[in-house]
């Protein structure tokens, strides 16, 4: 059971690929392959993408067009914009620089 999300997928689905497993913050999610990662995470019920390095405030996607950098996530040690990534199976996604003290 996925958690209740403030967002709903229409019947036409997100980009309607087959579901593939990814992990977010240690949790496994089944997301549509090829979908926009930020949209797919929102639809899957992820509400906080990161905490700011300044005050620790929670943040989630704001612009969905690569301009605001609030949807930053960490994949393979690199901090990237979730709204500029497409879902592929096996993505290991973490909140940026959280609970580990090494960018490598």
């Amino acid at each position: 059971m996925k958690p209740v999300s403030p967002f709903l997928e229409t019947e036409s689905g997100t980009e309607a690929g087959p579901r593939v497993p990814v992990s977010f913050d240690g949790r496994t999610l089944e997301l549509p392959e090829g979908a926009n990662l930020a949209a797919a995470l929102l639809a899957a019920g992820v509400q906080v993408f990161r905490r700011t390095p300044v005050s620790g405030a929670p943040r989630a996607p704001y612009c969905m067009m690569g301009a605001c950098f609030d949807c930053l996530v960490e994949i393979d040690g690199v901090v990237r914009q979730a709204c500029m990534i497409e879902v592929t199976g096996g993505l290991a996604i973490r909140r940026p620089h959280e609970a580990h003290d090494d960018p490598a």
């Binding site: 390095p53 580990h100 960018p103």
Partner: peptide
């Protein structure tokens, strides 16, 4: 760079980690 967890202890002429990270 982006703000990072502690990576560099002392500064050098090549790189230093600023107090903001």
């Amino acid at each position: 760079t982006e703000k990072l967890p502690k990576l560099i202890n002392r500064p050098s002429l090549i790189a230093r980690q600023v107090d903001e990270g």
